[in-house]
Design a protein around this nucleic acid. Structure first.
Lengths: 295, 295
DNA sequence: ATAATAGTGTCTTTCAGACAGTATAGT
DNA sequence: ACTATACTGTCTGAAAGACACTATTAT
């Protein structure tokens, strides 16, 4: 047998032999921002927002999509995600993590497109969130995503659990929404999760699914990691920090318990936030010495 | 915020203009199997195994790689993963989940290859695990992956946490190993995780990294989900079930506490496992009515 | 004074960890 | 009788949840 060396093999390798899909990176960029508050004494409420781009061309012309684009041949997936983030927000060196890769055959009507999604968290004070507000193609949308129906049926060899979520995205002039169905099918040994968009109003592609998944990831990770700091400015009050948790988890937390839980993650400064019409609160900063639990 | 011009948009929509990467699916297939035990009275020990394929062609000829292959244009990523699993093990309808997508530019010497990895769990009694044992190209390897060095240094605006893991894969005649470096860099607001293979003996591509990540995912998910059942036969004793947890988590668990923890997940049968040289133990089966915690 | 938030103390409940004890087959 | 595993009861301490209480500013 005439063996060839690895070097020879690589030299003769024909890359054009197989048809290949396109690969894109889509970014779920979250921020938390203060809402306007009329009463000078009351603290402003916080809202979770996601950045969307209005599509200027077909397909889904006029619909809103996640920022993203094709992965170049000379950049890694992470680099492509970083580049997209920089292009859309002009921000670098920010928290970013890969979420999930979407690979359904017909998820893009143009051609076969596989999309690797990333989540990014940014502190809204870092740049003017209102910049892309009107008549522009980039806009921040208030995010709310709620479970509104849940059903579990026991089959003879397992169960079927169905969850319906309503995703609502509120922009300046438009309100987008989608219904997402999550099905968990346990059949004998086979446990499978399926996520699909049942209804999508104003949201391009399967991006409602990606936003939903990003929020799910954010909600679970905020409980046991320090990623929430990526949404905070350098110095912040503990109430502000708690509000960020509350808006993401969509619950009210008890102050004393919250403070006990995150006490090791923060360091007290000697500065205060005053002029608020009530007792000033101490400013804190991130404690880099905080130990994550070995998992 | 930097706006994207319409020209840029249109440019990116012309997909045929761009060179495209290849996309593969790589499967981390785990099983747990009994080791031989000489003493008729003692229970056999359990070991965690992963399926690897000996490469018959360049690149990495003769090295061991995860089963996998190119994604066809007419199949989704999930379908490709299912097909690969069926081709390698002849098993269908088994637990499978997407892990992570690897997209470094030079991770494959042939051409640009982006790999979407999946983890699959199978019950070893479902088929003859020893089938691919010798002189064949598919083989099961005992898995062990241990943290052997950990270092945390505080910088002026964050910290750097370095963890070194040793992955050891024991096959019939060969022992493969790799050193994996996980670096967590917190710099101001930017928290980034980097995983890289420092050393790889006998393992092709970056597959040591994928196995390591799969094991990490398995370890965290076994704690709060019911995926462990995918590794069990229809009926099993609670000690067998505990052994599966112990071999995956690489710790010893206290019997009374383990039973308390998983008590709601199982249903007692009226059968016993006897002839073991000691008191027979009751057989249990999976409780499909077990509620996962809403997260 | 009042409205509104800042911040602390402590009781209770829940859950994980540790350990001791009893039970029962097979040779 | 002995070995090895099967199975249960309960003490302890840590963490999560609930709630009451005091403190302090701007108007």
């Amino acid at each position: 047998m005439n063996e060839i060396t690895e070097a020879e093999f690589l030299k003769s390798y024909d890359v054009t032999k197989y048809e290949r899909p396109s690969v894109t990176c889509d970014m779920v960029i979250f921020t938390v921002i203060n809402e306007e508050e009329a009463n000078y004494r009351k603290l402003p409420k916080k809202v979770l927002r996601v950045l969307l781009i209005n599509r200027k061309a077909h397909p889904y012309k006029g619909k809103w999509a996640l920022p993203g684009g094709f992965v170049n041949m000379d950049e890694s997936l992470d680099e492509a995600a970083k580049r997209e983030l920089k292009e859309e927000t002009n921000i670098e060196n920010i928290y970013m993590e890969q979420l999930y890769t979407y690979g359904d055959v017909y998820r893009d009507p143009r051609t076969r497109v596989i999309s690797c999604s990333y989540m990014s968290l940014i502190d809204s004070t870092l740049f003017d969130v209102k910049a892309g507000d009107d008549a522009k193609d980039a806009q921040w949308f208030d995010v709310s995503d709620k479970l509104f129906e849940q059903q579990k049926s026991i089959t003879n060899d397992g169960y079927i659990l169905t969850k319906l979520y309503k995703l609502i995205l509120k922009g300046n002039e438009s309100e987008l929404n989608a219904v997402i169905k999550v099905t968990i099918i346990a059949k004998g040994k086979n446990i499978a999760i399926n996520r699909e968009v049942l209804e999508s109003n104003g949201i391009a592609f399967d991006h409602a699914l990606i936003i939903h998944y990003g929020l799910e990831r954010l909600r679970t990770k905020i409980e046991y990691t320090d990623i929430a700091f990526s949404l905070m400015p350098e110095k912040f009050t503990l109430t502000e920090f708690q509000q960020v948790y509350e808006v993401i988890l969509d619950t009210e937390l008890l102050k004393a318990n919250f403070r006990r839980k995150i006490s090791e993650m923060v360091i007290e400064t000697n500065q205060y936030k005053a002029d608020a019409g009530h007792r000033p609160s101490k400013l804190y900063r991130f404690n880099p010495n905080w130990e994550e639990i070995e998992r």
